[in-house]
């Protein structure tokens, strides 16, 4: 890898995007599809879980908080292995025939992202609850409604939480390469494609793909932050 390759990578990245290369578009599409689906599922699980842990006082609450924070640093490869053993033919859910499919990749990324969503939203909701708790008690808000209301009122902070989750999902390679198998035209995503090009020694092309991934991540973040800024002017202060 030399300086020449480095600049070459930017040119390649620009060429790839401008040419709307069909293979590349397919890979980007699958990356987004897998990571966004994982993010949606993780959010459906993680937000209520985080809110419950942030609002309710129960024995072992501190332990759960520590556990959720610890799970945030779960290495993707470990998650990949766990999901592999779950969906392998010799595993308990082998009969579902999900190994080496996009669905298995979604499951792996969901396992990876849910702790992040839960742990970070617990923090957000706990802070909000500090402000709301007494007023909500005064209103006699039922527990379920309280969780709902706080998730809604914290929605713009939670958007940032979701972005953190998305970032983790779209960027990880360790889990999806094990459970997806990096199969061409089927389970190949941006990160596994980058790993493949690296192992082919085509470092400039690998970096070009990396640049494209970075651009996608930037666009998603910019779009969400733009939405957040606009929305905050309307309903939030």
């Amino acid at each position: 890898m030399h300086v020449h390759d480095f600049f070459q990578a930017f040119r390649l990245a620009a060429d790839l995007v401008l040419a709307a290369d069909a293979d590349l578009m397919e890979i980007i599409g699958l990356s987004l599809r897998v990571s966004l689906t994982a993010l949606v599922i993780s959010s459906l699980i993680g937000f209520p879980l985080g809110a419950a842990a942030g609002i309710w006082r129960f024995p072992g609450r501190g332990l759960i908080a520590i556990l959720m924070n610890a799970l945030m640093s779960l290495p993707p490869v470990v998650v990949g292995l766990l999901v592999y053993f779950t969906f392998s033919r010799v595993g308990p859910f082998g009969w579902l025939e999900l190994l080496y499919t996009p669905t298995a990749m979604i499951v792996a990324q969901t396992v990876l992202v849910t702790p992040i969503i839960a742990a970070l939203s617990r923090q957000v909701i706990e802070d909000l609850n500090r402000e709301y708790a007494e007023q909500f008690r005064s209103f006699s808000v039922p527990p379920g409604a309280a969780i709902q209301a706080m998730l809604w009122d914290a929605r713009y902070s939670l958007l940032t939480v979701a972005l953190a989750g998305f970032g983790r999902a779209i960027a990880e390679v360790g889990a999806v390469i094990i459970v997806g198998g990096n199969i061409n035209h089927y389970t190949r995503v941006m990160t596994t494609a980058i790993a493949l090009e690296t192992s082919k020694g085509d470092l400039a092309f690998a970096l070009a793909l990396g640049i494209v991934l970075l651009v996608i991540a930037l666009s998603v973040n910019a779009a969400v932050m733009g939405l957040r800024a606009t929305a905050m002017r309307y309903a939030y202060a």
Binding site: Y132, E134, Q135, S138, F139, W152, D153, A235, Y236
Partner: peptide, 18 residues
């Protein structure tokens, strides 16, 4: 009983809504 009561606090708690 509490549902038939209401309280206004010194620092009003405004929900992050309209």
């Amino acid at each position: 009983i509490r549902r038939r009561q209401a309280m206004v606090f010194q620092q009003p708690v405004m929900l992050r809504r309209t």
